[in-house]
């Protein structure tokens, strides 16, 4: 890639953990702060930018590529809340083709179309499908496409597991010019131990939490209206949570190469937390972190 335009941020995490909601709210908050933002959904589900666009249809890059040989940016983008340019990479129908290669092809096409040179964004956010299931989904963190990656996780073990997998991918690509980890976004914080558990995980892996997003009724409500919290409830506490996250991403450039746990280490770590949670539930009082 030639000269880079704007900061390119990739956001990963287990499916259903709230990546798209988090990414869209960060995009909205950055736009609200006056920045020019592009959000690219890298998921065959192609619903990353829905709440930025009020739920309107947007043809995906790959669908358009399939139907017409020449694709223009106008065909595959829509301007959403606060002027955020929304793009969905799209993918094949389930069970057919190779979605990973699709992400690769879509990102390549956007580069060929000089999207970044012409639009001159301050921020480009890549919202990438759940887990790093194959090489294709690691494209945004390879080859210096994104500068930093953020991982969204809850305190559920499977979400932590997916985060740890992403750490493995970053660990692999970062030394050869791939993205480094900007930090962990702790989402859906509800259980009393959730913060401590995620904090401990980041400590174990040499990473840090950049923001805690509490589980919130406002988010659910805004989503049902097809909007981000920034748009639907700009004065809510939740909106400030996202604004703080956006500010962090804007102001902090620090990044690390994480040290993922290997299989047995991760299981062992999880087991210790199983015991701790049990003790909390049964009322054993110790010098617990934030409980």
């Amino acid at each position: 890639m030639s000269e880079k335009h704007g900061k390119h941020i990739a956001i990963y995490g287990k499916g259903g953990i709230g990546k798209s909601t988090t990414t869209s709210n960060i995009s909205a908050a950055l736009a609200e702060a006056g920045y020019k933002v592009i959000q690219i959904g890298c998921d065959p589900k192609s619903d990353s930018t829905t709440i930025l666009r009020g739920g309107n249809d947007l043809p995906t890059v790959l669908d358009t590529l399939r139907e017409q040989s020449k694709v223009k940016i106008e065909d595959v983008s829509a301007v959403g809340f606060g002027g955020v340019l929304c793009i969905e990479a799209g993918g094949p129908v389930p069970g057919v083709g190779c979605a990973g290669r699709g992400i690769n092809a879509a990102v390549e096409l956007l580069q060929e179309l000089n999207l970044f040179e012409e639009y001159k964004p301050d921020f480009v956010l890549y919202d990438v499908l759940g887990d790093v299931v194959c090489g294709g989904f690691a494209v945004p963190i390879r080859d210096g496409i994104a500068d930093r990656a953020f991982v969204v996780t809850s305190s559920d073990f499977m979400a932590i597991f997916a985060a740890n997998n992403l750490f493995k991918a970053i660990n692999k690509y970062a030394p050869s010019g791939g993205a480094r980890l900007g930090g962990v976004i702790a989402n859906s914080i509800q259980a009393p131990y959730a913060k401590s558990l995620i904090d401990d995980f980041t400590q174990q892996t040499g990473t840090s939490v950049v923001g805690y997003v509490p589980r919130s009724f406002t988010v659910a409500q805004s989503e049902l209206f097809g909007q981000t919290v920034i748009e639907a409830a700009p004065k809510s506490e939740q909106a400030d949570v996202y604004r703080n996250l956006a500010r962090f991403i804007d102001e902090h450039q620090d990044s690390v190469i994480p040290h993922p746990l290997n299989g047995p280490e991760l299981k062992k770590w999880a087991r210790t937390w199983g015991d701790r949670i049990f003790e909390v539930e049964t009322g054993v009082v110790q010098k617990m972190e934030s409980i």
């Binding site: 790959l62 399939r66 993918g91 094949p92 057919v96 083709g97 190779c98 979605a99 290669r101 092809a105």
Partner: peptide, 10 residues
């Protein structure tokens, strides 16, 4: 071609 890789070549 790439199209068939992404969407399946059946």
């Amino acid at each position: 071609s790439e199209k068939h890789v992404v969407f399946g070549g059946s």
